[in-house]
Simulated scan of single mutants.
Amino acid sequence: MKAKTVLILLSAVILCLTGCTESQKPTTVVDNSSAVTTSSSADSDSTNSYYDSTPISQAYLSGNTANLDDKQLEIYNKAVSAIEKLITLDMNDYEKELAVHDYIVGCSSYDEAHLNALGIGLPNSDNPYGCLINGKAICSGYSTTFQLFMDMLEIPCKTIYATDFEGDDHSWNIVQIGESWYYVDACWDDPIPDFTDRPVRHKYFNVSKEYMKTKHVWDDTELPDTDSTKFSYITQTVTHINSVNEIESLMEKALDNMQDSVAVTSDMSDFQFSETDQIDTNFNEENIKGLSKVFDSFCEKHTDHQVYCQRVQNGNDIVLVMYMRKFR
């Protein structure tokens, strides 16, 4: 396999050209899959502030680790070990991506020290060393680790550095699965506080640009559109049901697989939705006959869980998604 070369695309220069507001910060897109390099004339040295995982992915693809320093070699060994455990030859790219996402969320937790008044946390929390070796990361630690794995698996991926909806610096990914691109935020799928045996969240796994923009702010001028839901998490996991009573067994199965959500559709009249819920708004389960009893039964068996649901847009369909939130 050919080793990949590095591209750093800095689109900050388009801040004043695309109608961005004065308060919106520049967007930086790092792509380790092309040989072309473009940078903003306003900040030609800004590439130095972003972690370059290319030497590690190149070493994996070429089979030659001679040029890696000690820290890179630690990351390499940890990543290779994970790939050998997670990835099998019969997996498609979606399955590989999902395995990597869940591994990253499981092996690391957010470095909360970065949230204190001084903003000083552990070193390397902004790169794969912090995520894979120290088990602590901030958003850029999650996104650069995801980028590294995608590059090693030769799945097209870009890392986006911009802001969240509150204007704070944030980083996430866009990945190509099949013929379409999808957005992924592994950091926000590992919410604070973290604890052992919590089901993995997939709220921001392979979502559309429109969904991502409800809580993320960036200039997408240089980025491809998400034009399919074929490999969205909901599409890949949704189940058509004929009775509300089927939902509890689906929730149990999801929990056994360390997943925190179940998506369902149905031809039943109660499931003919005309509108969706906002991203942080719950749907009243009492509007669906028998659903409250299902939730009560589940929570009686799992007293450390809470359950709620949402109507979520998935392409042209509105899907009901149940979330099982485990608390300490």
Rank of each mutant, 00 (worst) to 15 (best):
Y50P: 05
Y142M: 02
L61S: 08
L17D: 12
Y161P: 00
N116L: 10
E95C: 05
K85P: 05
N92Y: 13
W188Y: 08
C131K: 06
N284G: 05
T163E: 11
L115G: 05
R325C: 06
T38H: 08
S143F: 04
N116I: 10
K301H: 14
A82L: 10
H202D: 01
E179R: 08
F195Y: 13
K209E: 13
P193E: 12
M251E: 03
L118V: 06
M258W: 10
V294G: 02
E248S: 05
M212V: 03
S53V: 04
S208T: 15
C20Y: 06
R198C: 08
L9H: 11
Y323E: 03
E112D: 07
V238S: 02
M322Y: 06
M212I: 10
D277G: 01
D225L: 10
T281V: 10
S44C: 08
I104H: 03
I56L: 09
N173E: 13
V321I: 07
S40G: 10
T144F: 00
Y60Q: 03
G167R: 11
P156G: 14
L255C: 04
Y94S: 05
V244C: 02
I83L: 15
Y110L: 00
T221F: 15
K136D: 01
Q310L: 08
C139G: 11
Y183F: 11
T54N: 11
M268D: 07
T145R: 01
S180E: 10
E112Y: 06
F298N: 05
P156L: 07
T237G: 04
S81K: 13
T47A: 13
L122I: 08
S46I: 13
T303K: 14
D256G: 08
F149W: 03
D169Q: 11
K230W: 03
P123A: 15
S40M: 08
D190T: 08
T21H: 12
K203C: 06
V262E: 01
T47P: 07
G135R: 04
D277V: 02
R325D: 11
A99V: 13
G178A: 14
D317R: 12
K203R: 12
A42G: 13
E84K: 15
L98S: 00
K78S: 07
D111P: 01
F165W: 08
F146P: 00
T47V: 15
V262D: 00
N92H: 08
V264E: 02
C16K: 09
L153E: 03
F327G: 03
I247D: 00
S39D: 05
L320I: 01
D164E: 11
G315A: 11
V36K: 12
D69C: 07
V264Q: 03
D219G: 06
T18L: 12
A79Y: 00
N206S: 11
E95I: 04
S125F: 01
S81A: 15
Y50M: 09
V13D: 15
T163A: 06
A254L: 04
S46N: 14
H114K: 10
V312K: 01
L320R: 00
V264I: 15
T196L: 12
N64D: 15
S261R: 03
S232A: 13
P26V: 04
E97P: 02
L61E: 06
E97H: 10
D256F: 06
Y51H: 04
Y161T: 02
M150L: 14
V30H: 07
L73Q: 15
L118K: 10
E97T: 14
H170V: 00
T27D: 09
